[in-house]
Amino acid sequence: MTVRIAAFARIGEILRSGTLELSLPGGATAGAAWQSLCASFAQLAPLRASTRLVINGALADDGTPLHDGDELALLPPFGGG
């Protein structure tokens, strides 16, 4: 299956793009998607504890299952205002 990764701020810089398509085995979780990205972008690994995972607009965690076509957003700590 394919999910769309939406990356923001420093995570977007690490992935060198605000969005990318990620191919994963069927039944993969948000945590598996993160691990897959870390395999390609090692600088991502230390940021897991401070990063919020959001699937199709809803807060998720490592165990939340992904489905084909989902958007997984990676949100680093906020800096608005």
């Binding site: 701020a9 949100l75 906020f78 800096g79 608005g80 205002g81």
Partner: peptide, 24 residues
């Protein structure tokens, strides 16, 4: 609450040409 909860990010650009993402 905006600063704590709303997903917005800020990158400071400095006069020396450097830049950094800044977290609340």
């Amino acid at each position: 609450q905006l600063k704590a909860r709303v997903p917005i990010w800020k990158r400071e650009r400095y006069r020396d040409g450097d830049a950094r993402w800044r977290e609340n």
